[in-house]
């Protein structure tokens, strides 16, 4: 991840708002992420992280403001075109269908296939590559229902990679996972040569894996910048209402946040 000079951000939201009924969920939020970088979205429950994720992924159109991909407005992309550029891993994915790991990962090729075009060797290669990347190549015939939470997230990540995206968006991908699997998933994601947006709960993990962090509170952007500038004791107290001690970790050189209880 070299810091070459970048002209324009790959993905940017400018003064976006989003309403659920009459309730304001997001209010004039501006964030952006440069090529190859990882943007972390943090904030308490209900701060609007998931809504911002949906707007950035182009799944919803903002009520006000605009979202751009490579400087072009989101609305200018055809759905399939967008699905080839941006892929999404949701917080929680469930199905009643009796699908296998390979069935799910193959869904990632959907935006590249027309109604009746055959499955190609190129598709096969990309799917296998994605499975190898998440370490599930030997589990391809296993049924979805028999997988653990962490494995399911890895399968969804492989599906997202099979879309061959340039931008990967993850909505709290490590929710419900134990600490080892949280770190596994985030390390996997941070090693990918992709522009990434990830909503995340754990502040230490955010500090460890994100290049820039956006802090949301009650639908507003409170702070936006590199972790060292953003994750201050004051911001943490203001936004999360907890007292914390922030220091530089002697182990990995990143920020370390201790909550004083």
């Amino acid at each position: 991840m070299t810091s070459d000079p970048v002209s324009a951000p790959v993905l940017a939201a400018t003064a976006v708002s989003w309403l659920a009924g009459r309730k304001v969920i997001l209010d004039g939020v501006t964030v952006s992420v440069d090529e190859g970088r990882t943007l972390g979205l943090i904030g308490p429950n209900g701060s609007g992280k998931s809504s911002l994720i949906r707007l950035l992924a182009g799944l919803r159109a903002p009520a006000a403001g605009k979202v751009t991909l490579d400087g072009k407005p989101m609305s200018g992309f055809a759905r399939r075109e967008l699905a080839r550029r941006v892929s999404v891993v949701e917080q929680h994915s469930a199905t009643e269908a009796n699908v296998t790991v390979i069935d799910v990962v193959r869904l990632g090729r959907t935006p590249y296939r027309s109604a009746l075009s055959p499955w190609t060797q190129e598709d096969d290669r990309i799917v296998t590559e994605a499975l190898v990347r998440v370490g599930l190549d030997d589990r391809r015939e296993q049924f979805w229902h028999t997988l653990s939470g962490g494995e399911r997230q890895r399968v969804q990540l492989a599906r997202a990679l099979a879309q061959s995206p340039s931008v990967l968006i993850l909505d709290e991908p490590t929710n419900h996972l134990d600490i080892q699997h949280q770190i596994d998933i985030l390390r996997l994601v941070s090693e990918l040569p992709l522009t990434t947006v990830v909503a995340i709960h754990d502040l230490n993990l955010a500090a460890r894996f994100c290049d820039v962090i956006a802090v949301l509170s009650e639908g507003r952007l409170v702070a936006f910048g590199p972790p060292t500038d953003i994750l201050t004791e004051k911001t943490i107290a203001d936004v999360f209402g907890v007292e914390a001690h922030v220091s530089t970790s002697p182990h990995h050189g990143r920020l370390h946040i201790q909550f004083l209880m």
Partner: peptide, 16 residues
Amino acid sequence: DAFTFGEDAARSLGIA
């Protein structure tokens, strides 16, 4: 097939 994980998942796979 793309509806396997719901409507949002289908949408993000490029389905109208």
